[in-house]
Amino acid sequence: MTKIGRRDFVNYLLGFGGISAIAAIFYPIGRYLVPPPIREAEPTTLKVGSIDEFPANSSKIVRFGRKPVILIRDSGENIHALTATCTHLDCIVQFSEDRQQIICACHNGVYDLTGKNVSGPPPKPLTEFAVKVIDKEIVISQMKA
């Protein structure tokens, strides 16, 4: 290999290495700057659907961050949102339309619609979420302590 040839090779290698290193550094930065499509881990508010699709005397479980939340529309106009895991042994609670109460089928724990533990083994109330209806859209948010 001639002197000139070696010199060229080193310069080419510098150019190639330089460009690939720049790519290796700027690719992650570019990806980083594009915001991820996924919801944030601990949201403070959550849209849970239209009020028209949520008839009276019905309930559904929605996901709030990593916690399940039970959304209830009682026989009247009121909408309640509470953590859905029973405070006794973490079963998912359900809405009892007849009694207008929340019950846990695992050990017959009973809560009222504000989450207060009424009877059975649950030691603590369910945590309540604030519910607002904005443009027919139900929005729940964490209550301020």
């Binding site: 070696r6 310069n11 290698l13 290495g17 290193a21 790519a23």
Partner: peptide, 19 residues
């Protein structure tokens, strides 16, 4: 991959220094 890229650059710099 990224380490490889940086290592290539490092080798190139090293060769340049020798030169």
């Amino acid at each position: 991959l990224s380490t490889l890229a940086i290592v290539i650059l490092a080798i190139a710099v090293f060769l340049k220094i020798r030169q």
